Simulated assay, not measured.
Amino acid sequence: MTDALELSGRIVARAAARHITIAVAESLTGGLVAETLVRTPGASTVLRLGVVAYATEMKHEVLRVPAALLAERGPVDPDVAIAMARGVRELAALDRGACTIGVATTGVAGPGAQAGHPPGEFHIGLELDTVRGRVTSSTSHLVTGDREAVRHAAAIAALRALDAALERTDLTMHSESTR
């Protein structure tokens, strides 16, 4: 957990200094990414929203992941992760009109496979608001270990994705505080 807390501290400090806001959508991590960010003093200046959309229908109903995408590929998919990141970023912008970064996790924690996807497969999605418009990306991972090891690996991957996104110099500033 030390790596996660170090990453979180760096993310919160860098985002706060640049007035960058973050929203998190989680499935297999079950709130672990948001919880790690919240452990960091100052998180309230950057974290706008955390949503755990564990059930597939919640990915569609709450995060607005297209039903056709879910029907075609299922919930364990890189494009679903991007759609989740977009959905949570849009939800986080309801009262202010904007949120800079949406990050999402989806996958199979195990112990068994899910719809042909092995335990340990997960995807991280990002949507960024930049001065040139919306930018999306995803990464796919396959790790070994029990449920907790997979969830921890996915949370670390999401935090690393956030940390890398903050390297960009073209992110749009949105807020001095989420309070």
Results as ranks from 00 to 15, higher is better:
Pro118Gln: 15
Gly50Lys: 11
Glu26Lys: 05
Ser140Glu: 10
Ser137Lys: 06
Gln114Pro: 07
Asp146Leu: 07
Met58Tyr: 00
Ala165Phe: 01
Glu167Ile: 08
Ala55Gly: 01
Ala153Val: 08
Glu90Phe: 01
Arg147Phe: 00
Gln114Phe: 15
Arg132His: 14
Arg96Gln: 05
Val46Asp: 12
Ala17Arg: 03
Val12Asn: 12
Thr56His: 07
Ala15Val: 13
Thr172Ile: 08
Val135Arg: 10
Thr139Gln: 13
Glu6Tyr: 09
Leu32Gln: 09
Val12Glu: 13
Arg168His: 15
Arg134His: 12
Ile20Val: 13
Val52Pro: 02
Ala71Arg: 11
His123Ile: 05
Arg134Phe: 06
Val38Cys: 12
Val65Cys: 01
Thr36Trp: 05
Asp79Thr: 05
Met58Pro: 00
Ala43Tyr: 07
Arg86His: 11
Gly112Lys: 11
Ala34His: 00
Ala68Phe: 02
Ala83His: 09
Thr2Ser: 10
Val80Trp: 02
Glu121Leu: 03
Ala17Ile: 03
Asp3Arg: 15
Arg73Trp: 04
Ala161Val: 04
Ala53Tyr: 01
Ala23Ser: 11
Ile82Cys: 15
Ala109Ser: 05
Thr100Gly: 06
Gly74Ala: 00
Asp129Arg: 12
Ala81Arg: 01
Glu35Ser: 15
Pro118Lys: 09
Ser8Leu: 11
Glu90Leu: 09
His174Pro: 01
Met58Trp: 03
Met173Val: 15
Cys99Asn: 00
Leu37His: 08
Ser177Phe: 07
Thr105Ala: 12
Glu26Asp: 02
Gly102Val: 01
Met1Pro: 13
Arg10Cys: 13
Ser175Gln: 14
Thr21Asn: 04
Pro78Gly: 03
Ala161Glu: 00
Met1Arg: 11
Ala98Thr: 07
Phe122Val: 05
Val62Thr: 05
Val62Leu: 14
Val24Asp: 11
Leu49Thr: 12
Gly9Met: 10
Ser140Ile: 04
Arg86Thr: 12
Ala113Asp: 08
Ala55Leu: 04
Leu126Val: 08
